[in-house]
């Protein structure tokens, strides 16, 4: 029971990631692949943000009157994973944009976004 409470966040991310990964490699529809890709990347974001959490801590904005005294790091959550995930969010948005553009181009070329139908046309 304690094990579940201690780790459930990480297990949820693994589960989400499996869903996304499955969609990316197995789904036939290109748009569904992209949806899987988004789930996959969101799972990673969940993983990183979970690393940053601390019990009983608040958002990492230092109160001004704390300026003079010592600041206890345990009062503020770890800011680094949040910064890293800001980057990862930006990357996933950019990848999504390029992927959508590619799908539009593929759709114009073949008239479909189903992978098997496209491959049939090529042969």
């Amino acid at each position: 029971m304690e094990l579940i409470l201690a780790k459930y966040n990480y297990w949820i991310y693994v589960f989400l990631m499996m869903i996304g990964f499955y969609a990316m490699i197995v789904k036939n529809n290109l748009v569904k692949k992209i949806i899987g890709m988004s789930i996959f990347q969101t799972a990673i974001i969940l993983f990183y943000v979970s690393i940053g959490a601390k019990k009983g801590a608040t958002i990492p904005i230092i109160e001004h009157h704390a300026h003079s005294g010592a600041i206890d790091p345990a009062h503020y959550i770890n800011p680094l994973p949040h910064v890293l995930m800001l980057t990862a969010i930006v990357v996933s948005v950019s990848t999504l944009g390029v992927a959508l553009a590619l799908i539009l181009k593929i759709y114009h070329q073949y008239g479909t976004v189903e992978e098997d139908e496209i491959l049939e046309q090529i042969q």
Binding site: A6, K55, H67
Partner: peptide
């Protein structure tokens, strides 16, 4: 364990950011 203030990630580099940013 999740949200443990004693985890390596909370102890190694990040305290510097929190303490020294101001």
């Amino acid at each position: 364990p999740w949200a443990d203030p004693q985890s390596p990630a909370s102890l190694h580099v990040s305290p510097h950011y929190i303490q020294e940013t101001m």
